[in-house]
Design a protein around this nucleic acid. Structure first.
Lengths: 233, 233
DNA sequence: GAGTGGTCTAGACCACTGT
DNA sequence: CAGTGGTCTAGACCACTCC
């Protein structure tokens, strides 16, 4: 059955993946329990557990106490995305990064933003609009709202010099967040800053970050028509 | 130091995250080694290891043998995306899923597709175009190329009845893949099938799946202007 | 060379959950 | 209730890599 020696959890994982791929274990099948597999592979149960946990994290098997481990019927593979840091994204392609603040003011946000950040309707936020550039050419347009009640010392920072995202990452620890992708059309205003034609398609990324129950920041990034976001499965 | 008892690896993880968030351990800092932490927390080293491994997977710390564990300077948090299965996406919103095949033929693909799939320029592929619907209304337009040399038995399947993605998932095990997101504009042709106006923005997902060195399938999905793809961090 | 994380083991107990 | 995965432990050895 097993041609080569199985010792490490990676070996076990490999063998399990192989059995799923070759449909030796078919979607929906119950596979042997950890004790039996450990015996078959000649390793400790903890090693099998480590391997199966890794496979489960990929979404290829479903594990439940008492019910056992089944090959997933719909392999909902989870893809991992390295949330892009624009500076790195630009510098990795050999271009020089720069950043230009367009506008900064403290104002009560539109209701749409209030809703997304769950802030009160009389609660002013810091509103920053800026452009990220690579070799001086626009890469992304950024529209950001910062909750200055939750993020301290914002008034001491000059965001025309200091990239707001990088400052926040360092100074406003978040517990969780949500990212939304969508497509939109470049308005005259947006097209102007991105130096593209009005009406072109834009890739839109929106991110709201939270510290427990408090929204810290809501940012919308707009990328031009040639932008691609890639992930591996 | 530690107010409440620390026993499980989740507790250790929680305490570690807390120390990073409160900047007790600052970005770039070297944190104590596993043995010391285990002693401090009163648990086994394996438990600390489990916790730190989980934190490292989130990208918040960097771990290297001999060099030790450091708080990440750029918390490149990894977001996990459940790669959408359209049927589920539709049924979760309480709508009835259906699927309509528009066209099917075996033909040599355009060079762009040949490049993406690394196929020879005289190599025909199965080309399917279809629409996914929710309660009879278009949800996504699909344009798919299938490598029939790598995926067997495609000729025996009637893809006007059998959703090609679901069939492939069950019958053509992949080892890895790449997903690309972008934005485009609805052509007259696409707008027709999505029942929207020409020129509207479309959210575009492109996925190439591989079995080792062989491309199995290349699919492009187009979603209408209201579509949002969400992920958690 | 030596320090640190990476992993394996054998055994134990716990927690969930299907029957 | 009983079977299965989830986790913890104490100890050991290994593998990498910085100094």
């Amino acid at each position: 059955m097993t041609s080569s020696a199985i010792k490490s959890w990676q070996d076990v994982q490999g063998e399990v993946l192989h059995r799923i791929q070759t449909r030796f274990w078919k979607p929906g099948d119950l596979i042997p329990n950890e004790v039996d597999l450990a015996e078959e592979f000649g390793c400790a149960r903890a090693t099998v557990n480590r391997a199966l946990r890794a496979v489960a994290e990929q979404g290829l098997i479903d594990r439940r106490r008492k019910a056992g481990t089944r090959v997933a019927v719909n392999p909902v593979r989870r893809a991992t995305l390295k949330v892009p840091i624009i500076r790195q994204e630009i510098e990795e392609t050999g271009r020089e990064y720069s950043y230009r603040l367009i506008h900064s003011e403290t104002v009560i946000p539109p209701m749409q933003v209030q809703t997304k950040m769950s802030t009160a309707d009389d609660h002013s936020l810091l509103h920053l609009r800026s452009v990220h550039l690579g070799d001086g050419r626009p890469h992304a347009y950024e529209d950001r709202w910062i909750n200055t009640r939750a993020v301290k010392n914002t008034e001491t920072i000059d965001f025309s010099v200091q990239n707001s995202n990088e400052w926040l990452v360092q100074n406003a620890p978040m517990t969780h967040g949500e990212i939304t992708f969508s497509a939109s059309i470049a308005s005259h205003y947006e097209a102007n800053f991105l130096e593209i034609e009005e009406g072109k398609p834009l890739f839109q990324l929106e991110r709201v970050t939270w510290d427990e129950e408090t929204a810290l920041s809501c940012v919308t990034l707009l990328f031009g028509p040639d932008y691609r976001m890639r992930m591996q499965i």
